[in-house]
Structures are given as C-alpha cells and as structure tokens.
Design a protein around this nucleic acid. Structure first.
Lengths: 334, 334
DNA sequence: CTGAAAGCGCTAACAG
DNA sequence: CTGTTAGCGCTTTCAG
C-alpha cells in the first residue's frame, strides 16, 4: 500500500500538506492540491483503514451475529443488512452463533475490541432457552450500540420485530373463515419467544371462535424429533385435520408433501399456511400460502436504526420497530 | 475501552512494562506480571484491534465476496468459511456482488485499503460473461492473496473447484445404466464456466454411449425465461423424456414437481438427478437424487488455502484444489 | 527488571 | 500557504 509519506517524499512536501490537500483543505493552494491528487490517483493511493479507525475511533464496520445462516430467514436478513450497510458506507463482519450461547458470547467478546462500531444481532436459541442476557448487557454497558432483530431479549436497546402474535392470529382467523373445524398448529420453534407468541395468536383466535368450538391441537416438534415422522403421525392420529398453520420456516412444506401423499385434496379439504418469506417455499405444488415477514425490511430497518444511533440522530431513548406482516394466499388455501 | 495507558497509570508503571507483562515477556518480574494481569482482567482489558493491525500490518480478517447469498450453495459455503475462519482466529467481512461486475470491483477496491489480509471469492455472473479480470489482477499485483472458489477465472492464484465435467459425466452414465433413452439436461447456468463444464460432461457421456444412440437435448433456461413454463414445455414437446439431469440448484425440484403433476411415475418411468448439496432439496417427495458438491469442504478448503498462504507455509506456486463430488441416489433414481 | 523513545499511517492543532 | 508536532494504542528496540 502506498502511504502519505511516500506521496510527500515524491512531491517534496510534508505529510500534513498531502493529507490536507487530499481532504480539500482551504489552507492548501489550488496548485498543490492538484499536484497531490494527481500523484495520488496515479499511484492508486488509498488511506489506510486501520490508521483512520485508530485515529477516529470509528471503524465504519458493523458486527452481525446470526444464529444460523442456512435458515433462509437469516440468510435473507443478512442479505438485506449487507446491502443497506454497504449503501451507507459500512462493512459488516458476520459471525454465526450456530444457536449456541457460548459462540454468541465469544463473538460479542471478540468483536468488542474496537473491531466494530455496533452490533446487529438475533439471539441464539440456547441463549433464549436459558434466558441469559449478561453477555449482551456487558456490551450495552460499554456503550456499544446494539440492534436486536426477530429474536429479542428483555434489555433496553433498539429492536426490530414483527407482530408474531397478530400474524398467526390473523392466519388462524383466515382458516376459520374458510370453515375449517380441525386446525392444527405445527411448530419447530416452541422454545423461542417468537414461537410462543405465534402459538398464542393461534390459541387466541380459536378461543374467540364461538362457532366451531374446536380444541387447539399444537404439534411441537423438538430438536430430536423427526419432522416427517411427527407429521405422518399427526395425519394418522388425527385424520380429520382440515387446517394447518406452520409457524416455522419449513414444516409447512413437509406437511404439504405428506398430506398430498396421503391423498388429501389441498386446498379443497385441507388448507395449509406456512410462516416465512417466500423464496424457498415457492417450489411447491400447489404453492404454499404463507405469512410473509418482509425479511428484507427487517434487515434494512435494523441497519437504519443502528446508523441513526451511531450518528446520534436518534437521541437517548431506545426504539422498537415493528415490521408489518402479510398473509399471502396462494395455492394451499381456498 | 480500557487502554494500556490506563492500566499503566493505575499501577504506576510504564506502558511498555504493561505491554510486556501482558505478553509474558521474560524481561518482566513474576510479581509485576501478576499484578498487571490481575488488573487487566479486573478491568476487562482488551487490546485495541485497530492499533494491533496498524502496528503489525495484519488484520486477521478475510474479505469474502460471493455472488448471491440467497443461493443455498453460497450460503453454505459462507457458513463453512465463517466457521473455519473463526476456528483459526480470523474474522470475515462479507460482501455480496449480486452477480454484478461493478459491485465486485467496488468491494475489492474498498477492502483493499488494509481492511483485510486476503480475499476469498466466487466471481459474479456478469464478470464471467464479460470475461473481465482486471479488477482481480489489480489485487493480485498488490500482493494481496486471493482464493477463488467454484466460479474461477483464468488467473494465477489459488483455487478450489469441483470436477464439474466429471460429476455430470458420471451422473449421465448412471442414467444411461438405468437404460434411459431420452435424457434431457436442464441448465439455468449456461453462462457460467461451471455450467459449460457440466454440460460437456453430459454431452461426452451421451457421445460415448454406443447402445442407446440418443441425441442430446439441452434445455437452457435464461435469466428472462420462466423456469416452470420452460419445463412444462419440455414435457409437452418431448413427452418421451425418461431422464433429467439438472445442473443447477433448483431446476431439479421444479422438474420433479411438474413431472409428478403430469402423471409421470418417478423413478419408474422417469429419473431425475439434481446438482447441489442436499438441504433445501431434501424437502421433496420422493427425495431428489443429487450430485453432492460437498460445499462445506469447498468453503473450509478455501480458508485453509488462504491461511496457509498468509502464513507463508505454502510457497510461491499457486494451488488448485479439486473437491470430490458424490452421486447420491435417493428417491428419484432407480 | 523497568522505562524512554520510536514508529505503524493518519489527522489536526499550532507555528511559521 | 506549508511544515512541525503531538497523539490515536500498541509493540519493540535500546538504555538504564
């Protein structure tokens, strides 16, 4: 890398003159500015990032910590974050916690050494199950800003979430409006706060439904359970099921396949609604109806919140932004 | 952040003593080392990353540039890269080129200011179509190491690839061994070097097959084409098709759905082989047979190659590592 | 055993 | 208008 010093030597001026010239300082003569810039361009000079960061105490870099990059939701959120950050002149350092508290703690710890200006994070399942927040509080106490998205924690910081309760409440209402009498909820994420909220939305909708008077049926698929087997068992033990609300990313697809294989007519005799953004799930036939989370907006908003915070545009009080969801009716609902 | 200076002041010793103590220098007395370390731990001292980088001219950070993070292959590769890098004490800065040359140039340019020690990259489609390599050559000329994976370019640097030709050659051979007489190749990636190689493997296998004497049928799905429509048309215009080799990530799934919908018996009357790692495609029924790329190994090897290079373990000559592929027969082949 | 000083590349008072 | 100096946080000679 070519440095200011090298430019200065070649031009027979001082380093500070070169620096000022490149920054269009009023103090420097037009002529000198010209000469300096020309040589800088010619030698492809670029200010050393580390030196700038050390001096300014700003890295223009955000730390992003996500639980699982193979989950399409997080991949898309990461995509949105990268896009918006780069648009605003920020880089992102990505860490994957793999749903583990220890990795999350570690990443936070390692990046809080001046590597990043702030964190954008969605917390690991283990963290949520154990309800540990100390490692996050430590960061906050150091004055490093943090935006939590999707899976949040009860701490005072900026957050971006969706209305999980409302989303599945509405979806369940829709199934009820189709006249479904045996609506089952399938969840692989009952351990997560978002999972509980979504389940509650379903329960509430059924509870409020005075006409069908159906009992809620919640199928909770644990880490060690086989998803396909569990769903098969559902159809066996509960053949009258005529509505399925899947509140995670993937179980809706599996339920659809299993139902079709068992001869259910979808959506004539059975409606299925999945939860997630669309892409991956677009490859079913018929196309899965879903609750869209607008993942792209979630990521984008997280970055905006962070950068506002960094630029002190927003003042002291922390914000929780709720992104609207959408019930998208495609082929698996009437 | 707490600094060496602060520790030094509190302990009434010099900054250099503190620095040496923390680095277990022989020069410092056991006693002092003890005291220093204790306070350091107590105040949660962490060496400032930027200062270290500036001093050492090493960032312990890798720049990763991928074309599209929503493509499962790249998501998984990124996952593997992050995992291996973090294991080796490196962070990664991720940039998404979105298949655009300009974004790729930009990311390379921006990160080559001392932000990263090296690049791991898979080149954008546009870059490959236009066959532009100048921006990459510039980086290489600056002495910044680069590992290209999957989609590579004809430049002298380390590379990690798979045997694309061989993989689809073998897959086609398998279809032939099943006695398939009308094997079609579907490709969404004919613009890419890997796509061409895979197509050639298919062509070669058919050419060598003296018994069935079939004409190759290559369905090239372009950016503006509708995948589902194209596949539907295939079945209409070519109802005798009894074997499909999909050489991209997704078209195999769509082909399977469309075929089932049209009443083909899979795999009795029609075999389908997809290309990619498994995860996403596991959610079909029957399960799609695929050529597994061992994406995880690709990512991991890329990082290893990079770090070897950075640590000068490997000497001057550049390496091309080829990761083995695997034909995984599941439900869509006999 | 400890400290002073220099320097990584840069910016910004302050002097001239 | 240009240069000198100091300092961001750290490591590393070199003196003491």
């Amino acid at each position: 890398m070519v440095t200011l010093k090298q430019l200065a030597e070649q031009l027979n001026v001082s380093v500070s003159t070169v620096s000022k010239a490149l920054n269009n300082s009023e103090e420097i003569s037009k002529d000198t500015i010209e000469r300096v810039k020309e040589l800088a361009k010619h030698l492809n000079y670029q200010p050393n990032k580390m030196a700038l960061s050390l001096k300014s105490n700003k890295t223009k870099t955000l730390g992003v910590i996500i639980p699982n990059i193979l989950n399409h939701f997080f991949a898309k959120a990461l995509y949105a974050i990268e896009m918006e950050a780069s648009k605003q002149g920020y880089n992102i350092i990505t860490c994957v916690s793999n749903e583990m508290l220890s990795k999350e703690e570690n990443s936070l710890q390692l990046l809080s050494n001046g590597s990043v200006d702030g964190f954008i994070m969605s917390i690991a399942e283990e963290t949520q199950v154990k309800n540990k927040t100390d490692h996050i509080a430590v960061i906050l106490n150091q004055g490093i800003p943090m935006v939590l998205f999707d899976r949040v924690v009860d701490l005072d910081c900026d957050k971006v979430i969706i209305d999980d309760f409302g989303a599945s409440y509405e979806a369940t209402k829709h199934l009820l409006s189709e006249g479904r009498k045996h609506i089952v909820l399938i969840s692989e994420i009952e351990e997560l706060s978002v999972g509980k909220l979504r389940t509650n939305g379903y329960l509430k909708a059924l509870e409020e439904d005075t006409t069908s008077q159906q009992e809620p049926i919640v199928i909770h698929v644990g880490k060690d359970d086989d998803l396909e087997e569990t769903i098969d068992n559902l159809f066996i033990s509960n053949s009258k099921v005529d509505g399925i609300l899947s509140i995670d990313n993937t179980s809706g697809v599996v339920a659809l396949h299993k139902a079709l294989r068992r001869g259910y007519k979808v959506p004539e005799n059975l409606s299925i609604i999945g939860f997630s953004d669309d892409n991956v799930l677009a490859y079913t036939d018929p196309k899965l109806s879903t609750i869209s989370q607008h993942t792209f907006d979630i990521g984008k908003s997280s970055v905006k919140l962070m950068i506002d915070r960094l630029q002190k545009k927003s003042t002291t009080t922390h914000v929780t932004k709720t992104i609207k969801t959408n019930l998208i009716l495609r082929g698996t609902t009437k």
